[in-house]
Design a protein around this nucleic acid. Structure first.
Lengths: 130, 130, 130, 130
DNA sequence: GTGGTCTAGACCACA
DNA sequence: GTGGTCTAGACCACC
């Protein structure tokens, strides 16, 4: 079942995001080995070049280290990983608040909107995050 | 003052966004005339074709109407404009919540993060939004 | 009540069409005087230039004659007027059939479609043409 | 054989029309790849930008999907394609009937006219549509 | 190789 | 004056 990608943003970035999430959610832990480029490409149904690029990007972010002849591993630098989580959270929240403000929404409107969405989403899907 | 654009998303879409914001902030009101394609191009420091595209997109969204030989005007359909505001709000909120959820953050963590950002931002800038 | 025009085709052509229809439906008869350019412009809520162009086009089609200092009149050439009716009919029918054929619809499908539309439209509007 | 285009309507829309027809005539099937922007431009004797616009429009209509770096393909959504056929048919028929009615022709006259055209056209061309 | 965006500059029809 | 279309040619990201 070759995956679905959002055509409006690069596949390799979507893969970076996905791996970040797996790390944050602790599905991938410090030191874990990532699938080989070739395997990952098959799994995701994309070109190996694309995976290569994904891993490069992750390495640039220092989230991953590649050991020649052995493969690609999640960094063992725990601080880095803890940071990752906090950074992503703050980044998202800040940009969200900035946007809402720029668009001229009041805090009240925003909170109201959040409540609404949460109410609606209650029945469906898995909301395993309380 | 030729403007700054984020190179990672098309200029014409950034301009669409900007105009949408001006509308929902009521800086542009129903029936207002937008600058001519050529003027806007000079203001924004881009090619007239890029503005053309911006205006086309806005027209496709029915936010704007163009009268041949006269110019481009914000629609006078007030319902449409009210919708725009609501839509943009919901859209942003939903994508924010979706992202946070996908990254495995709990509602608690999220709210905490929002509080933090709001505390910090208190002294600086204008926070005229309560 | 300044009129409504379809923005996708020139106003002056829409006016040509409208006048043709009035002639065909015998609301305008041979020799009748058309409103002055100025009056017509006010009636239709458009620029006098646009009416000028409309009349020019009608004159080019020999449907109308302008007498200097007197105004613009529907031609008295009855043959021309009878022709107009037949020409417009044939023209429309031919182009319709050509299109349907080009798109690969069978005569059957076409007739079926016509029936459908006629059935639906029955209750509403004035179908004073049996 | 650089093509001929009707100067009164945009080339890019004429190309949209043409491709739509190829699809409903099943000359282009679900999943088929369209020529690359550049190739199509050469074939049609127009600028690549014009083809780009054509393909964009088709994508906006959800008739076509573009896969980054791979090309542009007819959607595999069969329902969408069936709809296309019906929509185009109804659209044409409705606008034809509306026009005839507005011009004051009776249903009888119209049917008569259709018969006439069909009679005449009998000898010539291929009328493989019954 | 593919599509997507942008610039520069032209021409046109419309009001 | 306005917007709409088109060309020519460039650059980019993605596969």
């Amino acid at each position: 079942m070759t995956e679905e990608f959002n055509p409006s943003t690069p596949i390799y970035l979507q893969l970076v995001e996905r791996i970040n999430r797996q790390i944050i959610r602790n599905e991938l832990k410090a030191g874990d080995k990532l699938p080989s480029v070739r395997d990952m490409a098959i799994q995701a149904g994309v070109n190996p070049n694309t995976i290569q690029r994904t891993y490069s990007e992750l390495e640039r972010m220092a989230i991953v280290e590649t050991k020649r002849g052995q493969g690609t591993f999640v960094t063992e630098d725990m601080k880095k990983l803890a940071n990752l989580r906090e950074e992503l959270k703050q980044e998202h929240i800040e940009s969200f608040l900035r946007d809402m403000k720029e668009m001229g929404f009041t805090l009240e409107e925003m909170m109201e909107g959040i409540q609404m969405v949460l109410e609606v989403g209650k029945g469906g899907e898995n909301n395993d995050q309380a």
